[in-house]
């Protein structure tokens, strides 16, 4: 077994009595690509909130790289550790240019002083050019991010995620609003990233999950219902019940 990148053990979190996360345990190995599926309200987004420090769990362990306790850290800390997150709704800096969006995302010192005395460098520009190439926005670098189409914003956000060079990428429904061809390209991109980095994808689109060709975790009511290959979990009667029963 490979070294664990992220380890969740018996995590609980409730909101006003509603148990959003209920005894959730999950292990992501280094370099693994994992898809998480589940019906609405299964706790997928809350799980990401807990991993990224946005929400504190009521109880349970969330461990990064075997030794770092994530439950004590906030969003900025988690990001600096190397956890990158892409939101379900594409969230980019609308009044900044595409290049500036990427420039802010590039890994580097995030402190006030460093930002104040930051000077743009050749190397930085090259990295941005490279990213623009990957996300297919080479011609749009100077446009305002707010003027991009929905799909382009999705790509930009993926680009921002890559710019951070995180060890773990948390990707929330990347295929929403993309064409079929784009969806396949995204799957391909994520597959190529995995290995070097760990990737956790939340997705509804089963075609996309199939294209990822990876281990699948089914969440239901805040805990893991089934885990394994897509064929394995889709044969599970409980999973069928959850997905088709209503």
């Amino acid at each position: 077994m490979r070294e664990s990148q992220l380890y969740l053990n018996d995590v609980n979190r409730s909101f006003d009595g509603f148990k959003a996360i209920n005894g959730l345990s999950l292990v992501i190995a280094k370099g693994e690509l994992r898809a998480v599926v589940g019906p609405n309200g299964a706790g997928k987004t809350t799980m990401l909130d807990i991993i990224t420090g946005k929400t504190r769990p009521d109880s349970g362990e969330v461990v990064w790289n075997k030794d770092t306790d994530l439950t004590k850290l906030d969003e900025a800390d988690c990001a600096r550790l190397g956890i990158g997150r892409k939101f379900q709704k594409p969230t980019v800096f609308e009044t900044l240019s595409v290049r500036d969006n990427l420039m802010l995302s590039l890994s580097g010192d995030r402190e006030v002083r460093a930002s104040l005395f930051h000077r743009p460098s050749r190397d930085e520009a090259d990295r941005i050019d490279g990213l623009l190439d990957i996300i297919g926005l080479t011609d749009d670098g100077l446009r305002l991010a707010g003027d991009l189409s929905h799909g382009q914003k999705q790509w930009l956000e993926i680009g921002m995620l890559l710019a951070q060079e995180p060890e773990l990428l948390l990707v929330d429904e990347p295929a929403a609003g993309m064409t079929d061809a784009e969806t396949m390209r995204t799957a391909e991109l994520l597959r190529s990233i995995a290995g070097e980095r760990s990737v956790l994808v939340i997705e509804h689109d089963m075609e996309f999950v199939r294209a990822l060709n990876c281990k699948v975790t089914v969440l239901h009511r805040g805990s893991v219902l089934a885990e394994g290959s897509l064929d394995h979990v889709s044969a599970n009667p409980e999973v069928i019940e959850v997905y088709l029963g209503r």
Binding site: A76, A79, F93, E94, D100, M103, L104, V112, Q164
Partner: peptide, 27 residues
């Protein structure tokens, strides 16, 4: 400066800025 861009980023999408690792409160 880059700091100014971070400020605009905070204005546009504060939580996104946090998830990029910036300490929004310091800025």
């Amino acid at each position: 400066s880059k700091l100014g861009k971070v400020l605009v980023a905070v204005r546009d999408a504060e939580s996104r800025t946090r998830f990029l690792g910036y300490r929004v409160e310091h800025y």
